[in-house]
Write a protein that binds this DNA or RNA. Structure first.
Length: 219
DNA sequence: GACCAGGCACATC
DNA sequence: GATGTGCATGGT
């Protein structure tokens, strides 16, 4: 497909979602650090459960890099328990905190001042931080133009024939980055809207998009 | 009670 | 390189 056609289709879908849902004001979270923590906790987990875990961290007043890292690992795991996989995620959070504290003096400003693609490589080097978590951190906490690909993105754009069933993360990401302007605002809103429509109309169990704002784009 | 959720690492073939 | 599995809570 010629790429200007692809670009028009992707923008038409974006506009349809914007029209249906309006601005999503993502990432849900008051500070960049809260967004980073949320990005780890939401791995394969419903956001409503992440909110409970973050509420626990706020109640304990430990939602800063230094304070979170000072928590005994068992205590950290107990606080994030509602978000599931709490032992795994406690370890992932601690390794990410170690990176923030040791390589960036605990300052997110310093961390995000790094050259973006080298920061992405460094984040991916942290055990437990994969491409989606890294890109969510970069885009939403750091304001860097990296398109976030998640399960909904693959499901929706797979069902609409933009990518094959076996498309991996990087291939799916290139669909957007190769065909859209490199805009933080656009990437931010587009991903948020994909999650919104995915939650409502593109669950695994609901293969048909009968009420979906995107149904007119189906082949 | 089954199924699923805004992944990731690791084992095995 | 592809496919399968463990990790775990809470909502539908």
């Amino acid at each position: 497909m010629p790429s200007n056609t692809l670009r028009r289709k992707l923008m038409a879908i974006y506009r349809a979602l914007r029209h249906a849902y309006g601005p999503q004001h993502w990432w849900p979270g008051d500070t960049p650090f809260e967004m980073i923590v949320g990005a780890v906790l939401t791995q394969n987990t419903a956001w409503v459960n992440v909110e409970k875990a973050i509420a626990n961290l706020k109640r304990e007043r430990v939602l800063t890099p230094a304070r979170l890292f000072r928590l005994p690992p068992r205590k950290l795991a107990a606080l994030i328990r509602p978000s599931g996989y709490y032992n795994i995620k406690a370890g992932r959070l601690r390794r990410l905190l170690e990176f923030i504290l040791s390589h960036n003096a605990g300052s997110l400003k310093i961390m995000f001042a790094a050259e973006p693609s080298s920061l992405r490589r460094n984040l991916l080097g942290v055990h437990g931080i994969g491409p989606e978590t890294a890109d969510a951190i970069l885009l939403y906490a750091g304001g860097k133009p990296f398109f976030v690909v998640d399960a909904y993105t693959r499901r929706i754009f797979g069902r609409h024939g933009f990518i094959g069933p076996g498309a991996d993360y990087d291939e799916t990401q290139r669909l957007f980055t190769d065909n859209l302007s490199r805009s933080v605002r656009l990437y931010n809103e587009y991903h948020a809207l994909i999650v919104r429509v995915g939650k409502e109309h593109c669950k695994k169990k609901k293969p048909l998009c009968l009420e979906c704002p995107l149904k007119r784009f189906l082949q």
